[in-house]
Design a protein around this nucleic acid. Structure first.
Length: 727
DNA sequence: CTCGAGCTCTTTTCT
DNA sequence: AGAGCTCGAG
């Protein structure tokens, strides 16, 4: 029996209500994930439902992992059999099994990312001399919305015939579709629409999954788009057991086609639907909930719902207006350092920002203060050209029809095949509707000039060799082999800092693959490529990552919670983002985003802004975020200064004994400071041995510039950095 | 075909 | 500011 005593009556009812369509409108922190996990465990353990008959769809990979872990901790042997995944990975799994029913596709299809998509469209646009590249935006927009809505090209064109460019736009979309078809490739949106197409054209396949998924759960339902909702409806058509959880106030994916209307649609589409409401918050203090409510009330387009809590009133929300971005980061890092001394864990803190570009400042300061951290949603690594190119080899081996990747690696490392030749090859490919590989391997058939032919041959031999070696090696060995025989590092032989970096990145990639293989037994290149494309960040399940400060965008921490949350960059134009300033609709989404950010906090929330910020290569004065005003946190200048001091000395003003304890520590440290002088040799846990080259006093803290062997100069705060003097 | 100088554009967010 | 891209010279 599953012990359901952890659930309150509000949560218990929908947990036990296992049959039919159930909608739960669950406010932030109302125990939605707990409800979902208990319900699934209850189905398996008490209702004796076979775990392989249960589907649970979450919105991000992080949420997937979280739910898997939770279920595994309750039912260790059963969790693996439940399908827990995002819509996208569910569709990939279904398509890998069944896509051969769609003419021209096979199970080794490649998933094209946004960059691939962009490149293809640009190329197609260029091939049409009469078309202006300025319609590219329109193409992307229309293509996204037609796919999000799950419409056919014809249907969409009929509905949008008013647009004067629609003919051209549709021509490009058609050619793009044809191109992907030729390459046995699907883009992100295709994963959903092709699954829909498959279900529509192959009743057998649909019937199989309808039979399989007797109990379907969808988390974050407010963020589903039309195709996702259609897929869900089709899947539950046989057994009719659908359980969705959502919160309108947390809908933050409008830009991806999310349709809040789906919550209302479900009430229309299923007449016997049962609706539950969870309004009690178990996560946050009264202060945080009151502030969040105050903020979200400014949105007009919402069903009125008021979150409440029995938790303590808690600390006031602190608003700090820093002088610039360095001060902003300094402020945050200091507070964390102080609280760590009070006994907090690193993982109790999250630094949240609207845009990922802001994280660097914080990384630097956290490093200075020796606070371990992890950055979420950091896609940059896989965007590097050396990484893309190396992975290009894997993609070509995985799917030889993948023109995009083939074009990427045919001259990497350099083989004297320039862009003109590549263009030519791609043109032939689309003219004859054969893959580029087909042309490369039959140069005479396609009239390839001798000079080019001779350059192509070694490349063809290389790829052929790799194809043959694939089956004889495991993932890790194979990739090392690729790097070796393709002579990838030789491309970066010249001894420059940039080249050194690129080589280090390739090593990091090998390391990443190694740890992937470690975490996923018998992983193939297909598995690895899939995880790389579908997951935006690098985190593998590294046990070292568990106790670290989180630095993240707000989007990426949806569904997570932290004791202390810092929301940084609270400025008009940044949060809310500038794009939203002249659109009420987008402004409401920004407000929901701020609401999500606030409600991540359990105990304490800090809102921070920089009065002056360096952005777009310029230093600019900023305006306080309008949300600060809406939350009633604007303060006169003097008040802010006092607040800051209070934070800094918080550790000394709490209780008498505490003060004494901290005071002692400070005295101790002060004494030590004098031993640090210019020229002193020191050792640091992370950076190793270094020499102090300067010491600067700023307020109550001394900062030393230290030249670390092999690492260069770093600035560290002497009272905090773990430094030892080397004799 | 390759390289370098000069130009542009950047920053939404995740799959 | 810094990366990525375009264009012209070798």
């Amino acid at each position: 029996m599953i012990d359901l005593s952890m659930l309150n009556p509000e949560q218990l009812q929908p947990t036990l209500d296992t049959e039919g369509v159930v909608v739960v409108s669950a406010g932030a922190g109302s125990g939605k994930t707990r409800l979902l996990t208990y319900r699934i465990c209850h189905l398996i353990e008490d209702q004796k439902v076979d775990p392989s008959n249960i589907l649970a769809i979450t919105f991000t990979n992080k949420a997937t992992r979280e739910m898997k872990d939770r279920i595994a901790s309750m039912l260790p042997n059963q969790a693996d059999k439940v399908w827990i995944s995002t819509f996208h990975s569910m569709c990939v799994r279904i398509l890998r099994e069944n896509i051969s029913h769609i003419e021209g596709y096979n199970r080794f299809f490649t998933i094209y990312d946004t960059q691939d998509k962009d490149k293809i469209i640009t190329r197609i646009l260029k091939s049409h001399e009469n078309m202006d590249e300025s319609i590219k935006k329109k193409v992307l927009y229309h293509m996204a919305s037609l796919k999000n809505e799950g419409m056919s090209i014809e249907e969409y064109q009929r509905l949008n015939c008013a647009d004067k460019d629609i003919e051209d736009v549709m021509t490009i979309i058609r050619e793009y579709t044809q191109q992907l078809h030729l390459c046995n490739a699907l883009d992100f949106d295709d994963l959903l629409t092709k699954t829909l197409e498959l279900f529509k054209t192959c009743p057998d396949v649909l019937a199989y999954y309808q039979e399989k998924f007797r109990y379907i759960h969808v988390d974050e339902f407010q963020d589903t788009n039309t195709v996702q909702y259609t897929l869900t409806k089709m899947l539950c058509d046989k057994y009719g057991n659908l359980f969705v959880v959502g919160d309108e106030d947390q809908s933050i994916y409008g830009w991806r086609g999310a349709n809040i209307e789906n919550i209302r649609n479900i009430l229309k589409d299923f007449p016997h639907v049962k609706v539950y409401k969870l309004e009690q918050n178990y996560r946050s203090t009264k202060t945080i909930i009151e502030t969040a409510n105050k903020l979200i009330k400014n949105n007009t387009a919402r069903i009125d719902k008021t979150l409440w809590t029995d938790n303590e009133q808690g600390d006031k929300i602190t608003y700090y207006s820093a002088s610039d971005e360095s001060d902003e980061a300094e402020y945050v890092a200091r507070i964390i350092a102080n609280k760590i001394r009070e006994g907090y864990d690193y993982s109790d803190f999250a630094i949240l920002s609207r845009v990922s570009a802001l994280t660097m400042q914080f990384e630097q300061k956290l490093l200075t203060y020796n606070l371990p951290y992890i950055v979420y949603g950091n896609t940059k690594f896989f965007d590097r050209v050396e990484i893309k190119n190396t992975l290009g080899y894997l993609r070509v081996i995985a799917n030889i029809a993948d023109n995009e990747s083939l074009a990427r690696i045919i001259n990497f490392p350099r083989r004297g095949i320039g862009s003109t030749s590549i263009e030519q090859l791609l043109n032939l490919s689309s003219r004859y509707q054969v893959s580029m590989w087909e042309i490369l391997t039959h140069p005479d058939v396609y009239d390839i000039k001798n000079a080019l032919k001779h350059k192509i041959q070694p490349f063809v031999d290389l790829v052929t060799d790799l194809q043959q070696k694939l089956d004889t090696m495991d993932l890790v060995d194979f990739v090392s082999y690729v790097v070796k025989v393709a002579r990838i590092k030789e491309e970066y032989a010249e001894d420059t800092e940039e080249n050194l970096n690129r080589k280090l990145n390739i090593d990091a990639l090998l390391e990443n693959i190694n740890s992937f293989a470690h975490n996923n037994e018998n992983a193939t290149i297909y598995d690895y490529l899939e995880s790389v494309t579908l997951e935006s960040s690098i985190e593998q399940d590294d046990p070292d990552d568990h106790n670290k400060v989180i630095v993240s965008t707000v989007h990426a921490v949806k569904g997570l919670e932290f004791k202390v949350v810092f929301i940084v960059g609270c400025e008009d134009g940044l949060f809310p983002i500038s794009r939203a300033l002249d659109s009420e609709e987008e402004m409401e989404e920004e407000r929901r985003l701020m609401y999500v950010a606030l409600t991540r906090a359990e105990k304490k929330c800090y809102l921070v802004r920089a009065k002056s910020r360096f952005l777009y290569g310029k230093r600019q004065n900023t305006m306080e975020s309008k949300f600060i005003r809406e939350m009633g946190l604007s303060q006169p200048q003097v008040q802010r200064v006092r607040d800051f001091q209070w934070e800094n000395f918080a550790t000394q003003t709490t209780t008498a004994t505490d003060t004494l304890g901290k005071f002692k520590i400070n005295q101790q440290e002060k004494k030590n400071f004098q031993e640090f002088q210019i020229g002193t040799m020191v050792s640091h846990i992370k950076f190793g041995i270094g020499t102090i080259i300067s010491i600067e006093r700023l307020g109550d803290t001394s900062y030393a510039k230290i030249d670390f062997v092999g690492l260069g100069v770093k600035t560290l705060a002497l009272n905090i950095a773990p430094l030892k003097i080397v004799k």
